[in-house]
């Protein structure tokens, strides 16, 4: 069985079907991209995996364990970390304290948590900001802090939600470099991204969805040239 697998995932909000019979699997060590136009259900998929929303039907499997009935806080414990598209920094805590809050999942000791946080802050190149309160950070650093905090929980699978959105090309370049290093450290990544260029560059495989349904799945180049994807992004005339 795959490292991570979603089977016939469906989520209905009243009459609206946000995710519709979606199945995909992710292999260990992969960077798996999910793309789709606005409102196609990408973030909903993340919210289903991280159990912020209950699934309407379908199954989610992680390392041979079914996880779609676990409480939301357990998801992190079994090794799935996430970031938020709309960043959620712990505003009045310093960068170091934010990361420590993540590190406490695996340790009860303040000294260990601080030590672990130092390592991760260093890994994410945020040393200069470690004593800054999170509320004073600009967006690129807040996005980076989201990642650092999630990394501190020592995930095996990391869900990245639009890490490059709102960043300028140079900042986005730095973010991509960080994502690659995270993968090289042995962490599997599922990433949602809007910007095709970013996705093409880093993903091993891409799943394209629209209206909550799969429209293409495969290598980046295949997905980018898929007529359904072109139609979803650019309209019928270009397909």
């Amino acid at each position: 069985m795959s490292f991570f697998e979603a089977k016939s995932l469906t989520k209905k909000f009243g009459g609206l079907t946000a995710v519709n019979d979606l199945s995909f699997s992710v292999e260990k060590g992969e960077i798996f991209g999910i793309i789709g136009p606005n409102g196609s259900g990408k973030t909903t998929v993340f919210n289903l995996i991280s159990r912020f929303f209950p699934v309407t039907s379908g199954e989610i499997w992680f390392q041979d364990k079914r996880i779609d009935a676990l409480p939301a806080h357990e998801i992190c414990k079994i090794g799935i970390g996430r970031t938020f598209q709309v960043v959620k920094p712990l505003r009045r805590m310093t960068v170091q304290e934010n990361v420590m809050a993540g590190a406490f999942l695996r340790t009860g000791s303040i000294t260990n948590a601080r030590h672990r946080a130092e390592e991760i802050i260093n890994f994410c190149n945020m040393d200069n900001y470690k004593l800054r309160e999170a509320k004073g950070l600009p967006i690129p650093l807040r996005k980076r802090l989201e990642i650092a905090r999630a990394l501190a929980t020592e995930p095996q699978l990391l869900l990245l939600d639009e890490t490059c959105a709102g960043l300028n090309p140079k900042e986005s370049e730095a973010a991509i470099e960080l994502i690659r290093r995270i993968r090289d450290a042995g962490i599997t990544i599922i990433i949602i991204e809007h910007i095709m260029k970013v996705m093409m560059g880093i993903s091993d495989r891409i799943l394209a969805i629209n209206f909550g349904k799969e429209i293409a799945l495969g290598k980046p180049q295949e997905v980018a040239n898929h007529p359904e994807v072109i139609k979803a992004y650019l309209g019928d005339a270009y397909a």
Binding site: F52, C76, F84, L90, A101, A150
Partner: peptide
Amino acid sequence: FYLVSIREDQDAATSLGI
């Protein structure tokens, strides 16, 4: 630390396994 995290953002706290 966990209490302050909950104060600052409950969803973020949940995502950290709290």
